[in-house]
Design a protein around this nucleic acid. Structure first.
Lengths: 340, 340
DNA sequence: CCTCGTGGTGAAAAGGATTTCACACCGGTA
DNA sequence: TACCGGTGTGAAATCCTTTTCACCACGAGG
């Protein structure tokens, strides 16, 4: 029922020492054991909990790190968040999650909050490559790590996925399974993730055609990384005079839309090949016949957090970029198109 | 490239006024228009951003609210989070998300952070009914709203789902579809959500049997609200001498496990009836033949946030509990068991 | 002409912890 | 005995903003 807050002064008075000593007890300063004990007892008796705001103000740094992600409803990012959390868990830092919703305005507001709250560090999966401005943070020497997507011209550490390689492996797998007309539904133009995955796809096609690099975009569609976008793009592809017999989809949510469009048209895998970049959430359980490029989402988060912690310790000075490899998770038992 | 932080004093000096006036300009105090303008110009020129930590210290209250959820990877909670965010969006408050991971220790730490950071309010879906202690918060008059689950003996506003009604409707639907041996896989014993849903299920069964209330627990299983738990429970049920011909599953993730176990056993809906409490994420798209009790997850979040805002404005004094109704989302075209 | 009220302003205190600085004390060495 | 190094301690400054309070100036009313 104690409603007033207990300060370090109250504890000091109760223990018969100065506030400075109380502070030292809680921060590992040198204090005689006997005194330290009596301080701890007094603190416990009074139910003292340090005021983190005052502490942050004085230290010019709080003990919270921000993780800013563009879509909290995408399991890829929640898994990434788990990685960050688990890594931070081992320190005294707390992680707070901010959902920018792919909206650069919301993102900017959260970046302002991070700055204004003097957060100890920021991990950000940028909503935009061009508009996301990390300048204010880096100017004030707040440690920042970009994850999954690197904002253009930002001098920050980054943890990325090998999108090109993943795209290449994916399309190669479809080719090897016997598909011929392989489409690609990728993300928004201008997003590094979209472009790199598409580039990998094209590279695999080129290699298969033996160098006759006819850049043919008939089967290429740009969508928005969301369910609806994937569905619309797939419908378009199906409406072509000669529809593709397989499709490489550049993210998990769009794949859901694609599967939906295929069901509508009564064409389901493996009659038509579907390869998703990123695990389709839970589909692996409900419908196990889907091959996907597995993304190290958890490790992405873990690594980003580790990098941030390093940076906060003032360790490395040069900017680091870590690239994690994708892995092809083959799940089809009956791979390949219907032989004609 | 400015690395030093600009304070209210710098702005004051630049504008030729006192720091107090600058503060008033930013907080809607009375200032002559001309002065206000010059302050704003000076602030813009210097790139002044208020130090939120100092502000919080002085005001004894920050401008962020915490949302503590037990499982960030469960779409139910991410959707709820969206609701909270959208409601907070319209104010100047920011939402930070904390994932307690169904772990009361982690949760306690986050509650301490919320208190120590002097957050303006807390919305919590408690990890435990008994161990979650909101006392420290309420003692300090921090507005708290419980959502989805109400911690026992906590004097706080709450926004809940009508679990009993939902469970009843669900089981009644299965009965009406012609199933006879209806099992129930619910959550952990002691959790209000588990118990209430089970109670609803039993009520429906009792009503069907015309009052001959033989409380038979052969077909009742308690699991842990997770995929694996659902799978294990379903396997157990399938191994019974006389397996059930339908099952009411008390949450979305367990349903995924259940579907998995059914696939293993080569028994799929609608041969065996499956009714999920809570939408199975994306399954509605991939596999549309699944009826579920639809939970108002988004509205839960929205309402909780609205309640919190009310409480912060010092509006209502008596503790409020809002109960939202579930809705049966029928999606089966070919409902009912195979007629024998 | 004097008084009262009011609206705008600045000086200064307050908010709670950390950290610097100076000092007191103790044991040991020259 | 005098001096020195080291260690633990407390007083006070500091972090930046909000808010109280006193004050001034100005306009209106008696």
């Amino acid at each position: 029922m104690r409603a007033q807050l207990v300060t370090i002064h109250d504890v000091a008075r109760a223990a018969g020492v100065s506030p400075a000593t109380v502070s030292r007890v809680f921060n590992g300063g040198k204090v005689t054991p006997a005194r330290a004990l009596s301080v701890q007892e007094a603190a416990a008796a009074l139910g003292f909990a340090p005021n983190r705001v005052a502490r942050s103000l004085r230290k010019q740094r709080s003990s919270v790190i921000a993780l800013i992600i563009p879509d909290i409803e995408n399991p890829f990012f929640t898994s990434l968040a788990r990685g960050v959390e688990d890594a931070a868990q081992r320190t005294s830092l707390s992680v707070v999650l901010c959902n920018s919703d792919e909206d650069t305005d919301k993102e900017r507001r959260y970046l302002e909050v991070a700055l204004g709250e003097q957060m100890a560090g920021v991990i950000v999966a940028a909503a935009s490559q061009d508009e996301t401005d990390l300048g204010p943070l880096t100017d004030r020497r707040v440690p920042v790590v970009a994850v999954d997507r690197r904002p253009r011209d930002a001098e920050v550490d980054a943890v990325l996925v090998d999108n090109h390689h993943g795209g290449e492996v994916a399309t190669r797998h479809l080719l090897q399974a016997g598909y011929h007309r392989i489409a690609c539904i990728t993300g928004p133009e201008g997003a590094s993730t979209s472009e790199e995955r598409l580039a990998g796809h094209r590279a695999a096609l080129r290699a298969a055609q033996g160098g006759a690099a006819a850049a043919d975009d008939t089967y290429v569609r740009h969508a928005d990384f969301r369910v609806d976008g994937g569905r619309a793009a797939m419908r378009e592809l199906l409406a072509l005079p000669e529809p593709p017999d397989a499709v490489f989809v550049a993210n998990n949510l769009m794949t859901i839309g694609v599967l939906d469009a295929l069901r509508e048209a009564d064409r389901t895998p493996p009659g038509v090949g579907v390869l998703s970049f990123g695990d389709v959430p839970w589909a692996s359980l409900v419908r196990p016949s889907l091959t996907a490029v597995e993304l190290p989402s958890y490790e992405l988060g873990r690594t980003a957090a580790d990098l941030l912690l390093q940076r906060m310790d003032g360790g490395v000075s040069p900017v680091q970029t870590v690239v994690l490899r994708t892995k092809l998770q083959v799940r089809e038992s009956t791979a390949g198109p219907a032989r004609s």
